[in-house]
């Protein structure tokens, strides 16, 4: 049995289409990522799976339980962490955790082993009101609360948005360790670089799936030649590369420009072109695409259609 099965789900809010025909399966024990910008439909999809929202059309099930008819069963076995920090800000860390433990009919003690690694990091502040925690600590507390009843499946809606790079890294380390315990995890994120930390990902854009696969396979399907081009002036380099007649796309990535092309050309040819435009310190090297390159490629293709 699959952990999650989604058949042809549609959802819209008035005139805005949030989800348009989503089909997806997640295996037991997988760390599955929903990757996409705001407005891709990630939150709607997670809410439907967490039994918080009815789809307009289609059907979804969690471990065989239907999200509409058997939602009570799902609520017993699922943990959910909403996108917005939504614990009680006027209760302390410990009071929050105790409260969530008791509404699920359990205690902190009973499942302490599960949250130990995370909770220990915030335990020194357990008397502090949740509203006064830093962003990273809030996320850890929220995750502890979502885990306290030992769920079989965990839905995390953008847990790392607005969190700094260090806390994000720590958070993903925690997710990896939870995967080891056998918990199925569905996590959404707008940060493309986090895709590579998932077992499988769904790339989402405007309510549709661009692709669903392992990060490696998605990268394998990239169908352009990709070069990282560097020169002294980044901004002018982007503009000039777009005028190069063999360029499919040119976008900045860090301190380089990723140039995608379908036509073969010799590097000297481009070097000459750029030198002619007055660029200095030019380097051109072929590179492997990342998920973000793939995403942008798929996005452009969808827009062209």
């Amino acid at each position: 049995m699959k952990a999650v099965e989604i058949h042809n789900i549609y959802k819209s809010y008035k005139e805005v289409k949030a989800l348009s025909g989503i089909n997806l399966q997640v295996k037991k024990g997988e760390l599955f990522g929903l990757i996409g910008p705001d407005g891709a439909g990630k939150t709607s999809l997670i809410r439907i799976l967490a039994t918080l929202l009815y789809p307009d059309e289609g059907q979804a099930s969690i471990f065989g339980w239907d999200t509409i008819d058997e939602f009570r069963e799902i609520r017993k076995i699922a943990g959910y962490m909403p996108g917005r920090f939504s614990l009680y800000q006027d209760l302390s860390v410990e009071e929050n955790l105790n409260f969530y433990a008791s509404i699920f009919g359990t205690t902190i003690k009973e499942n302490y082993h599960l949250i130990k690694d995370i909770y220990q990091q915030i335990e020194p502040f357990k008397k502090r009101l949740a509203g006064r925690l830093s962003g990273g600590m809030k996320q850890k507390l929220a995750l502890s609360c979502a885990l306290i009843h030992k769920p079989d499946i965990l839905f995390l809606d953008e847990p790392t948005t607005g969190v700094d790079a260090v806390s994000r890294k720590e958070f993903w380390e925690i997710l990896k360790s939870l995967e080891q315990v056998g918990i199925t995890i569905i996590v959404s994120t707008p940060y493309m670089d986090e895709a590579e930390l998932c077992d499988r990902v769904a790339l989402m854009q405007q309510g549709r799936l661009l692709d669903v696969d392992t990060p490696a396979n998605i990268i394998g399907k990239y169908d352009h030649d990709l070069y990282a081009v560097e020169s002294k002036t980044l901004h002018r380099l982007i503009k000039d590369l777009r005028t190069f007649d063999k360029t499919t796309s040119a976008f900045p990535f860090g301190d380089t420009v990723h140039l995608a092309t379908n036509e073969t050309f010799r590097r000297q040819e481009l070097d000459k072109f750029l030198s002619g435009k007055g660029h200095e310190n030019i380097t051109i090297k072929p590179i492997e695409p990342g998920i973000e390159d793939c995403f942008m490629n798929l996005m452009r293709r969808q827009n062209d259609q």
């Binding site: 009570r72 609520r75 920090f85 969530y100 009919g105």
Partner: peptide, 13 residues
């Protein structure tokens, strides 16, 4: 408003 209702709703309460 604060979103805590989401957490209550997904519980078996």
């Amino acid at each position: 408003e604060l979103g805590t209702m989401e957490n209550l709703l997904v519980s078996p309460l």
